[in-house]
Amino acid sequence: MSYLPMTTDIVSFDGHNGVKGQAYYARPSGPHKLGGVILIHHLPAWDDWCIEACRKLAHFGFACIAPNLYFREGPGSPDDIGAKVRARGGVSDEQFLGDTAGCMKFLRAQPESNGKVAVMGFCSGGRHAWLAGCSLPGFDAIVDCWGGNVIVDDPKDITPARPVAPIDLTEKMTAPVLGIFGNEDQRPNPDQVNRTEETLKKLGKTYEFHRYDGVGHGFFAAERPAYRAEQATDGWKKVYGFLDKNIGPRIKAL
């Protein structure tokens, strides 16, 4: 048993409206052909957790790009940059989709690409993953980890920047979707997760949903109080398995 060496870089991609974006890119080193993952950070920041998760996906045999959705704010501490974006109401769906399309193009242009690309996100990034999977052609897999506001029950959450409830776009979803949820989460709550699944069933979409007892929101994040080791370990296995099946095969250490 050995481990995969890894290569990481800060890279540039073609963002929305042709602006050059910034991202962290991690992949196993060597002459491999790799499935690519676009990893979307949560609202507070392009933070250590996002970069750690990006490296984790590379460690388990995928090429992962984690775009900094807040690169337009310039350099600075991720928390201060996130606070600036929050004060302005967050990034628009339109801008997010433009940036994500650029990341997809980046991944497929890399010599190590096997041509397959997934989009994955946590929390607000889970909503973003769903939105991208329904709005941009070309994804081979979608991973929604506890995305809030996929279903929108409060009309106040429909805004000019976020004018749609992603659930209403589900008919356009062409890739299989994996959902990971905590049964003690309030956003999305279990009822919203059930209604999301009903929509997928009704539309005949390919999906896997995994619900975990004893966990709330964000239970993968090992440095936070919400972390639950047993459920997180199983959840990550579900993620690798799903990605292996849909954008793999993932590269494994010998």
Partner: peptide, 18 residues
């Protein structure tokens, strides 16, 4: 003052008033 309630960056809490 921008007042919000969300995941904190530093405080060891799941959610915090920022």
């Amino acid at each position: 003052a921008n007042v919000y309630f969300d995941h904190p960056f530093h405080a060891m809490l799941d959610h915090a008033l920022g």
